[in-house]
């Protein structure tokens, strides 16, 4: 017979809640960026005013996403937190190197930096985080 009854793992429930919260705010941030970009392409009102409103909303949602990420990281157990922090460091390094290359290509007029390439950087960041996420479940 077991020495104890199985008790619910509050840690796992909290991690799941914090992860969902982070996914929600990240998604909201992405949506706000896309909607702001579309609105600024064909502004129904003054473009500068719309740009200001878009920045306020996007930054607000971005801060909420950042806070939810900090809450997620702080709530993780030490092994998972270590993996995530290593993943963040690796992602940052890859972004730094990629951005450096883009700047050099831009200065050499081989490839001029445009918004699509900046978007590519966020995809690289997403892949870096995803690779970290895979390691946590092994």
């Amino acid at each position: 017979m077991k020495d104890t009854t199985t008790k619910p793992n509050e840690y796992e429930a909290r991690e799941k809640r914090n992860s969902l919260n982070f996914v929600f705010w990240s998604f909201a941030y992405g949506i706000s960026l896309v909607l702001s970009s579309f609105a600024l392409l064909r502004p129904p009102v003054n473009k500068q005013l719309l740009g200001f409103v878009a920045i306020v909303i996007t930054v607000g949602i971005g801060i909420a996403a950042l806070m939810s990420f900090i809450r997620l990281i702080k709530g993780l157990d030490e092994r998972v937190r270590k993996i995530w922090l290593e993943s963040i460091a690796m992602t940052f390094a890859v972004l730094w190197i990629t951005f450096g290359c883009l700047v050099l290509l831009h200065q050499a007029e081989i490839n001029l930096i445009d918004s699509k390439e900046i978007g590519l950087l966020s995809i690289i960041a997403g892949l870096g985080f995803a690779s970290g996420g895979v390691r946590t479940i092994r």
């Binding site: 020495d3 030490e78 998972v80």
Partner: peptide, 28 residues
């Protein structure tokens, strides 16, 4: 010896089951 599963021990320690597994295997 206590007839606990990894999930039981994880719940007692408030860590993930994968972390218990990693400690047992000496990976962490």
């Amino acid at each position: 010896e206590k007839k606990w599963t990894q999930a039981d021990l994880a719940a007692e320690l408030q860590v993930s089951r994968q972390t218990v597994n990693a400690i047992e295997k000496g990976k962490f």
